[in-house]
Design a binder for these strands. Structure first.
Lengths: 209, 209
DNA sequence: TCGGAGGATCAGGAATTTCCCGATGGCGGC
DNA sequence: GCCGCCATCGGGAAATTCCTGATCCTCCGA
């Protein structure tokens, strides 16, 4: 008998595609959800072996759901789907109790292997993110995970479109100090341009689009 | 015999799911592409009946590809996949020669109907966007400074975090020209910093967070 | 057919910002 | 007390943005 799983993705079209794919791989799709909250309900009622969660769902996203499911249904293995291969997302996901981290840029075989792997109790990371995680451990300053309060504050103001000088004025510090914070947080996030910084800020909820 | 189509989506996982779905609906998937440029090449070589393009691809996105394909392969019907149901996107897509506009939030049946519809020479819009289009015709707001295709292209690349030089290299034009486009589009949008530009690009669906 | 409007292309140079180096002082933990 | 981390700044080189202006092209209407 096949592995039972529930599938959560806000795009019906994508979800149906994945469902077809997973069924043809021999899995049993016990239920589908369009957002994180629905996913949590579904997992509680269906009690599947695995929950496959898209991270990029609106409102209550895949990681929110993962965090809650890891607490209330620790027996259910969690596999997340995402397009982001940056190190900070991976560690964030692992902190949320996720056992499988699969990139959408990878082939379906990857998802199949992830599901089978987590059922055996393994942690599965898509090729390409394993490197990011390794790098995080090898990098001497991997304490760099969390931004300081000041850095997050500066990040938000940058993402809101304020100039370095304006930020300095608002925080009543030197523009040089703002530059220093920006430089530091960019280094921590391994992001080296403003545009990516803004996208990160939006994704991480520091500001809105 | 079935309708022949090519499929373009940057997420292999999603693409495979869609492929399985479309095949089980009786279509022939003649080729797959991971980005807009590849899609254009593939359509030229395979000459399918329909090209199904995800709009949200990095670098050279689905609309860029649509614009080019509408010019060089007008016989091939274009269906785009997107998550955005706002009016401006729909009209933008229609301007690019798109014949089918399918929301990812809709069921697979919708995509199937769209493909069959455009093959009969119809224009197919997902339920939910038809209303948006109607509204667009009722609102006499065409006076707005619309971005040119080139400007939108540059906007996307900026929002994706590429440097001016990198954009210039990719588009095979001078960095000065890229600066010129940026300056022009910033003036049109009345936006004067990169961060706000990125937020606008995300809001308007030119790129994703 | 002619001429204008607007888009795409580019350059020079001034102004601004980023980036990389280093430095100081405070504060909490060991 | 010492060490690590954070917040604070500065100098100077490098890169980028901003402003002005110019050429070439296509399309479109008079």
């Amino acid at each position: 008998m096949g592995i039972r799983l529930v599938l959560a993705d806000d795009h019906v079209l994508v979800r149906q595609g994945l469902k077809t794919l997973l069924q043809s791989a021999g899995f049993v799709v016990a239920g589908e959800a369009a957002d994180g909250r629905e996913a949590v309900r579904l997992v509680r009622s269906e009690n599947p072996d695995v929950a496959v969660l898209d991270i990029g769902m609106p409102q209550f996203n895949g990681l929110n759901a993962a965090l809650e499911l890891a607490r209330i249904c620790p027996r259910v293995k969690l596999v997340v789907l995402t397009q982001h291969d940056e190190q900070q997302y991976v560690t964030e996901a692992l902190r949320c109790g996720v056992k499988g981290y699969v990139l959408k840029s990878q082939a379906a075989r990857d998802l199949v292997q992830a599901i089978e792997g987590v059922c055996r109790g393994e942690v599965y990371l898509s090729p390409g993110v394993a490197g990011a995680v390794a790098k995080a451990y090898l990098t001497p300053q991997h304490s760099a995970d969390a931004l300081s309060v000041r850095e997050r504050q500066v990040l938000q103001l940058i993402a809101e479109g304020h100039s370095t000088k304006a930020i300095a004025a608002r925080l009543a510090i030197s523009a040089k100090t703002v530059e220093s914070h920006r430089s530091k947080l960019m280094q921590k996030l391994d992001i080296h341009d403003t545009a990516s910084l803004v996208r990160y800020a939006i994704r991480s909820g520091v500001t809105q689009a």
